[in-house]
Amino acid sequence: MFYQSPLRTITLIAALCFLAIYASFGSYFAREIVIEIIILAILAISLDFCAGFGGMVSLCHGAMMGIAAYFYGMMSVKLGWGLTASAGIGLAAAVIFAGCVGWVTARISGIFFIMATLAFGQMAYTIFFRWRWLGGDDGMGGMRRFDLSAWGVNLNDGLIFTFWALGILLLVYILSALLLRSGFGRSLSGIHANEGRMQALGINTATIRTQAMAFSGLMAGLAGILAAQHTFYISPELLVWTLSGEVLLVVILGGIGTLVGPIIGAILLVLMKHSISAYTDYWHIFVGLVLIFAVLSGGRGIFGQGEYWWQKYMRGQHA
């Protein structure tokens, strides 16, 4: 069950400060890395929300993000809608997709749930891969960032856009935390722990699971719109299942079921990728080995393990 412990709050603030400082004093390249981290972190929080707390290990989070990005692009570039309305449609599309997946898979679990989400994600990937009007496998460009000049904010400035993204990351964290400590979130944890008993208590577990996936889709959708606005370009690669696998990796690396862990995981993975690829072309092998090590070493992840030791130490102090 979720608790926003002081350790988590401190870690969250420290992580956000690190990203802010890294972006402020770094080069253009540093800001690009920070935004990459932020997008991955939002996606990972969204996955931790349903996998870590609801036991729904989804392999279609990339698809949720991509659908939002594509609908944002389609409405704003192809149909000429306003950016805010387009973003709304993008988020709605991600929520509807995630909700439908959640509803359809509400009665399956374990490897079958993983496979089902993989199938739905790949289905979405295939659609956009084939859809020539939206660029097909070439992807599409021409997306724009929100115009906040009325508030004196210019999102086309790299640093300002980084802080804007950082704000969205914080917003997603707060939204997740509030939801997870609500009656709904507690029920989600109950379903994770023992779905049958929740039903015996009169809880419609299918509804809770569907809602959880929909909220997760909303957060993943925010990452998608951010991604589209960041590079002004989207491609079907956003939806491919291996991306969802990498998001799961981030969650595990940071600490599944800790909510703040995924941010740590995203920072580590992206920094690791970039520093390794400075030396060698073969970064996959390192990522793969880290993943295997992360699972075999207990699966608590970096933050999760630290939190576990900290709690043990604190209990020792009290005893």
Binding site: I111, L248, H284, I285, G288, L291, L296
Partner: peptide, 13 residues
């Protein structure tokens, strides 16, 4: 799934 996903990466490289 995670460990064998990691293995895919390792074998790929």
């Amino acid at each position: 799934v995670l460990v064998t996903f990691g293995l895919i990466f390792v074998f790929l490289d």
